[in-house]
C-alpha cells in the first residue's frame, strides 16, 4: 500500500489547497504506516518542490516534459496513472480544484478506481473498509461513500483539512513518461487572466452581494470591504443573471459551492438555493435591512440595517483594527 498525491501548480506555484491535500494525504499514509509520493507536472522550481516535503511528501516525482506544460486532463491522467503504477499506489489524492474536477474522474475510469469528489474528512478505515465523507445535494447534506475498488481516488474540498507541517527530507526524482499523442488533441489557444485577486473556491474570506445592493454601480463598497479583508467577491444568482457581476462569482446550488472561514452576505435574502452553496462556511455574517430575512436563520453574526451605511462603517472599523 502506498499513497500518491497529484500536486497541481498554478504558474509554477502551489496554492494553499494543494498543501492541504498534501497534509491530508500524509495523514492517510501515516494511518496506514506507508509512504507518500507526490507527482508534480510542469515547470516548478526546486524551492517550491521542497515545500511538498515540508508538508509530508517522502518523495517527489517531477514531470517536466515540454508537451505537458499546459494542463490537458487526458494526458495528465495518463501520467498520474503511470506514477500510480510505478509507486504501487492504492490511494490517490487530488485537490478538488477546477482542474482537479476534470482530472479525477478520467483517472478513475482509467484505473477502474472509485472516486470521491468533494471529500471533507479523512477516510474511515475501521474494519478494513474505506469510507469517505463528501458533500452532497449541493451542500444541503453529506454522504458517506464506501469505495471498494483496489485503487481509491479522493478529491479534497479546499478549506476542509488544516495545512500541517510534517517535514521530510527533500527527495526529487525526474519522472518522464511517454504519453500517447492521442492524449493531446486538446489545444490551448489562449489563457485569459481575470483581475480577481483571490479565487472563490479557495478563498478564506468572501464578501458577497445580493439584489439588495440595487445595481452594479454600488459594488464599490463591497470591493473596499473585500480589499481590507483580503477577501474574494461573490454574489447571488439574480445578480449575475442581471449581468451586474460575472457568472463565476455566483454562489449557491447552481453556482460555486464555497467553504471559507468567513462569509459576509450583504443584501442577500438567504434563499435555500443560495444557502446550499455556503453551508460549509465556518462563520456567516448577514447584513440586511429586513430582520425577518431567512439569512439570519443561518448567520452566526449580523446587523439589521441599511447596507449602504453599514458596509462603509465596517470597512472603516476593520481598517482601524488592522492598524492596531
Amino acid at each position: 500500500m502506498s499513497v500518491l498525491i497529484y500536486t497541481e501548480n498554478t504558474d509554477g506555484k502551489f496554492k494553499k489547497s494543494i498543501f492541504e491535500a498534501v497534509s491530508y494525504a500524509r495523514a492517510i499514509a501515516d494511518a496506514n504506516s506507508t509512504d507518500l509520493t507526490a507527482v508534480s507536472i510542469g515547470n516548478v522550481n526546486a524551492d517550491e518542490l521542497a515545500l511538498l516535503a515540508a508538508y509530508g511528501a517522502d518523495k517527489i516525482l517531477n514531470v517536466t516534459s515540454s508537451n505537458l506544460k499546459n494542463f490537458v486532463n487526458q494526458a495528465y491522467a495518463s501520467v498520474i496513472a503511470e506514477a500510480a503504477k510505478k509507486t504501487g499506489a492504492n490511494v490517490i489524492v487530488l485537490a478538488n480544484t477546477l482542474s482537479g474536477r476534470g482530472l479525477a474522474p478520467r483517472l478513475g475510469a482509467k484505473l477502474e478506481a472509485g472516486v470521491v469528489e468533494g471529500a471533507v474528512a479523512l477516510p474511515d478505515q475501521t474494519d478494513g473498509k474505506f469510507i469517505v465523507k463528501k458533500t452532497a445535494f449541493s451542500g444541503k447534506a453529506f454522504a458517506l461513500v464506501e469505495l471498494t475498488s483496489a485503487i481509491k481516488i479522493i478529491a479534497l474540498t479546499p478549506n476542509s483539512f488544516p495545512v500541517t507541517e510534517n517535514s521530510k527530507p527533500v527527495q526529487v526524482e525526474e519522472f518522464n513518461v511517454d504519453t500517447d499523442p492521442a492524449n493531446f488533441k486538446t489545444m490551448l489557444k489562449e489563457i485569459v487572466r481575470s483581475t480577481d485577486k483571490v479565487s472563490l473556491p479557495d478563498a478564506e474570506i468572501i464578501v458577497s452581494g445580493g439584489r439588495g445592493l440595487k445595481g452594479p454601480e454600488n459594488w464599490k463598497i463591497l470591493e473596499d470591504l473585500a480589499d481590507v479583508l483580503g477577501a474574494a467577491l461573490a454574489c447571488s444568482k439574480p445578480v449575475s443573471d442581471a449581468g451586474w457581476r460575472p457568472h463565476n462569482e455566483h454562489v449557491g446550488q447552481t453556482g460555486v459551492v464555497v467553504s471559507p472561514n468567513l462569509y459576509i452576505a450583504v443584501g442577500i435574502s438567504g434563499a435555500i438555493q443560495h444557502l446550499a452553496g455556503i453551508s460549509a462556511a465556518k462563520v456567516i455574517v448577514a447584513i440586511n435591512n429586513d430582520a425577518d430575512a431567512p439569512i439570519f436563520k443561518v448567520a452566526d453574526y449580523g446587523i439589521v440595517g441599511d447596507a449602504f451605511e453599514i458596509v462603509p462603517q465596517l470597512t472603516a472599523a476593520i481598517k482601524q483594527k488592522n492598524k492596531a
Binding site: 478506481a113 472509485g114 465523507k133 447534506a141 453529506f142 458517506l144 464506501e146 443561518v298
Partner: peptide
Amino acid sequence: LIEEVISYELPEPRGQVKLA
C-alpha cells in the same frame, strides 16, 4: 460496482444569530 453510499448526514444546525 466500485462504490456505495453507506449513509447520509445533515449539516450541524447553526446556533442563534448574534446581532451587533
